[in-house]
Structure formats: C-alpha cells, structure tokens
Nucleic acid binder design. Structure first.
Lengths: 144, 144
DNA sequence: CTGATATCGTTGCACTCTACAACACAAGGT
DNA sequence: ACCTTGTGTTGTAGAGTGCAACGATATCAG
C-alpha cells in the first residue's frame, strides 16, 4: 500500500469514527437540542432569513423533516417565521431571542469540550488542522 | 479573538458541519447499512470477538439498541454469535462471510468518494491531516 | 385572462433508531 | 443457599426520517 493510500485509509477510518461519536456527543453537549435542531439554529445564526427549502438542500434532508423540525423549534420559541411579502409561498426563518440564548449556551459547552481536547496542541498544529478541515469540507461539498 | 481561539472556533464549526453531513453521506455510501450497523461491522473487523456490551460502551449506545442491531445483522447473515464457553452469559461476535463482503463493498465506495475529494491534496498535507485526525480522536476519547 | 407547470411547505403513513424499565439467566462471593 | 453483579432480551413509547399526496402560491405560454 502506498503512503497516499495509507493516508486515505486513515482519514476515512478516523472521520468515520468521529461521525459515530457525533450523535452521542451532541446528546451530551445539548440534551435539549437534537443534532438537526442545533444544526438549523446554527445555520440561522449565520444565514438569517433563509428558507426551509434552503435548509433541506444544504443538509440533504427531506423537506418534510425540515418542516417538522421548524414547527417544533417555533413552538419552543427558538425561531420565528415571517412571510415573504414578495412571495407568499416562502417562510423566512429567523432566530428568536430564545434561540439565540440556547444556542449560545450550547456553543459554550461545545467550546469548553473542544478546548479541553485540544489543550495540548501547538498553535501551528491547531491552525493547520483547522485549515485542513475547512478544505476537506469544501472538497466534500464539491464532490457529493 | 486570539489566533488560538480563532482556530478552535474553526475546528468546532467544521467538525459540526462534517457531523451534520455524516448521516446523509452514510445513507448514500451504503443504503443497505445504517450508520450504526456499519459501525458495528467495522468495529468487528478490527476487534473480532468483542461483546455486545463492549459495543454499547464504546459508542455510548443502550445495550438494548445494540441487542436489536446485532439480532438484525445476524439475521442478515453479516455477523455470527458464539457462546463463550468460559462465561455462558456473553456472546462473542464475529464477522460472517456476508458481513466481510458487504463491508468491503461499502468501504470501496467510501474510499472512492474520499479519494475524489482529496485528489488535489499534496501527500504531505494528506499525511498531516491523517495524523491530526488520529490525534484528535485520541484526545476526544480521553476527554469524554 | 386562463390553464398548465413549477415551487414551497404541510400532512398522512410507515419505518427505523433509540432509551428506559422490567425481566431472565449466569457467574461469583458471602 | 442467598445476594449481588454482569450480560443480554423484550415491551413500550417517543423522536426522526423519507416518500407520496396534497393545498396554496407564483410564473409563464397562449
């Protein structure tokens, strides 16, 4: 096996291992938010005013799933729906105050956890690791 | 925000983004295997002869969940259960021929996908990325 | 203007995954 | 023999998901 094949194999194995733990990690970090709910809130934080269809397309979820999650998050007071005056079919999604609050709390817990894990890393390694992850996700988006 | 905080923030964001896509990715790579089922098979490949309790502990799953998944995988002919003669409570899990086969097929598809994504990476970057992932997962295991 | 088509979101349905609780069974120690 | 612990199964309930069918709105061709 070439060095390249070996590296690819390692990347695959480790990313899979990470994915396996992701659900459990999310459950511990923010028990009151499912991974998808957290995802939607985090997305809305960056993309205020996006539509349900955007979320479905971006995360490869069925629109019915997003519809139900959005309804649930609205009922909990985490997001708001506004009608688009220029197109009455679309609902424009925004974070509600409750959503901003719970998102901040969840992010703090996640950050503390990650900080503990990466405490011993050199700044250079950390910075390179971050760059690699950005690049990998960008490549993943290009090769669906 | 310091450079370190910025890197930590990026790592957190990108890992979360990756986790969000993981389920959909798994569904595309191996539609016949759930992420947990694939996880169990992959684990058995490395740890032949492990017990159901080990799986539950390792992946933070309830033992009943593992029990059902194992029963399903056995019915499909992917794994075998053997009784431990020294302790009749435990069932020793092994990959069955069908499991080896489907695991190889799934891994091939995953590898092709990852290979396409990482095609443009330098060997040095690839090797470092792999090392970082290994290190991160090890740190994550130490800081649950 | 009218009808066909497309887009956005909701709902009914079936299925899987999951945890919790209660249970049966085996092992080990008192 | 009894109690405690460990391993796995089953009943139950609930969340998450995709598919298909639907209603409402928008867009466009004629």
């Amino acid at each position: 096996m070439s060095a390249r094949e070996s590296s690819l194999d390692t990347v695959q194995r480790e990313l899979t291992a990470f994915a396996r733990r992701a659900r459990a990690t999310a459950a511990r970090m923010h028990p009151e938010l499912s991974l998808v709910a957290y995802t939607i809130l985090a997305h809305l934080e960056e993309q205020q005013g996006c539509r349900a269809t955007d979320l479905a397309a971006h995360y490869l979820l069925d629109k019915s799933t997003v519809s139900r999650q959005v309804a649930s998050l609205e009922k909990l007071g985490f997001i708001e729906r506004r009608v688009d005056e220029s197109d009455h079919r679309v609902q424009v999604l925004h974070l509600a105050p409750g959503g901003i609050e719970i998102l901040a709390a969840a992010r703090t817990r996640r950050q503390e956890s990650i900080q503990a894990r990466l405490a011993a890393w050199d700044p250079e390694d950390l910075e390179r690791f971050a760059r690699y992850l950005v690049r990998y996700n960008a490549d993943a988006a290009d090769h669906p």
